[in-house]
Design a protein around this nucleic acid. Structure first.
Lengths: 247, 247
DNA sequence: TCGAGGCTTTGACCCAGATCAATTAGGACG
DNA sequence: CGTCCTAATTGATCTGGGTCAAAGCCTCGA
């Protein structure tokens, strides 16, 4: 999907480590140290990267691909609680196990930092600690934003919310704010969307069809989406907010 | 409600500042410094403590009473995204405005620290920064736990989840894990419960009646609840998890 | 003691979204 | 170029929870 190079603008263009997670201020010494504890991992679509409760040996960030955080009840009902897109952070500094299943939705490449050295570094460099706190607060805001979607929005509004979040995210990766015409590929199956939105996949399909019929979106194939008018979509989402979601 | 003194055991019993938020390691110097920037505020039931977007001049923790974090859509639909009970933390270190409305559900006393000095202190004392990160991660886990409740549970399970969380919380304030018989007072109106659970107040009322009829809970008046068998309640909640929620 | 007004409960009915069940695309591959 | 397999669409029907409406029940103040 998204190539590493394509990511750079949204992260930091001036240092060798391109991930927002760690290059808040680009101190050369810290970056050099980070390089020494860095490695890459890749996963295939469908593979579970971490099971809830698993010991975590790294923290890192997505380089390419899409992964989801999911929670499952014994009877099989599942709820996605976060969507990880390139440059998103994976891991819980200071915790030694995963809280949720992390599943690769497409082929995934992740940039990992070994956990203990990373945490030591965090303890000694306040601005990294601060950056992590801010990122965690962002995630918390996003999660709470999503609680409103799950608890109070209709199926149509839920779909529009999800589409506008993905569109916005994709568009701003390129640069600037998403307005007017936006084009992107859905990184999720209908079932994954349903799990995210607390719906069934049939309802997701029906509502997408309805939005298409009403001209809010244009579909080519199953995944390629054109939004002719971003404002219209945001309106359908019943959304005053300006961003949010995405772990 | 809960008196400050009653809180001490759940916080730190060995230092003059009893709030979990800040006494992670009880360094005397830090505590003395905290004392100099500390003050109290109180609010009446129903009063809005902060509006979303408000400038925040303090961070602090609840001493007594109950407050809620709520989000509202233009058409009036509202979703509660967090429940603040005594010892819970209020504020977003490093941010200068509130993300959600904070509303006092009962009369509230809050212990506040002036924001700038508190943040300076945080920047200079890594263990406080670390503690805040851990608390934020707890909140994030709780929020995501709640996403499962909102997205996938039935009305009955939602009610049981809320009751078991409040029961557990109340019981463990006293000490130990909540099992067997548990007694507590509901700190929320039916409407507030509905806003928390993404239901209507009528449905909340009906499901509470149903749980009473089935002997899962016993009610005296509208608010005083006895849970004869905590395991039974957790079972109704469809919950394998062990805690969670509560900002 | 008696209202008045705010919670709460309960009933009757309805509808958005779930469930069950076919069909219909798209690929990937021989 | 078929054919197999999985994702997606579409239809028919059912139901959990919403909506509207009418009592009940505390509490507080006169």
């Amino acid at each position: 999907m998204t190539k590493h190079a394509k990511l750079a603008p949204s992260a930091c263009g001036e240092c060798p480590i391109r991930h927002r997670a760690v290059c808040a201020k680009c101190n050369a010494d810290e970056l050099a140290e980070l390089e020494t504890i860095k490695y890459y991992r890749s996963y295939e679509a469908g593979q579970t990267i971490l099971w809830a409760g698993d010991h975590m040996e790294f923290v890192g960030s997505l380089v390419s691909g899409v992964a989801t955080l999911t929670q499952t009840m014994e009877d099989g009902r599942t709820q996605m609680v976060g969507l990880l897109l390139p440059s998103d952070f994976v891991g819980r500094p200071g915790r030694d196990s995963a809280a949720y299943n992390v599943v690769a939705t497409s082929d995934v490449v992740m940039c990992c930092f070994r956990k203990t050295p990373f945490e030591n570094m965090m303890a000694s460099t306040p601005h990294i600690a601060h950056r992590l706190l801010q990122m965690t607060l962002d995630e918390l805001d996003a999660a709470r934003e999503w609680m409103l979607v799950l608890g109070r929005k209709t199926a149509r509004e839920k779909i529009a919310s999800l589409l506008s979040i993905i569109a916005r995210r994709d568009a701003t990766l390129g640069m600037g704010v998403a307005t007017g015409r936006v084009v992107f590929d859905l990184p999720l199956t209908r079932e994954a969307m349903a799990d995210y939105l607390g719906l069934t996949l049939e309802t997701v399909s029906r509502q997408i069809s309805a939005l298409r019929k009403d001209g809010v979106i244009v579909l080519e194939g199953k995944r390629h989406v054109t939004v002719p008018d971003m404002d219209r979509l945001m309106d359908e989402a019943g959304d005053d907010s300006d961003g949010g979601l995405l772990a």
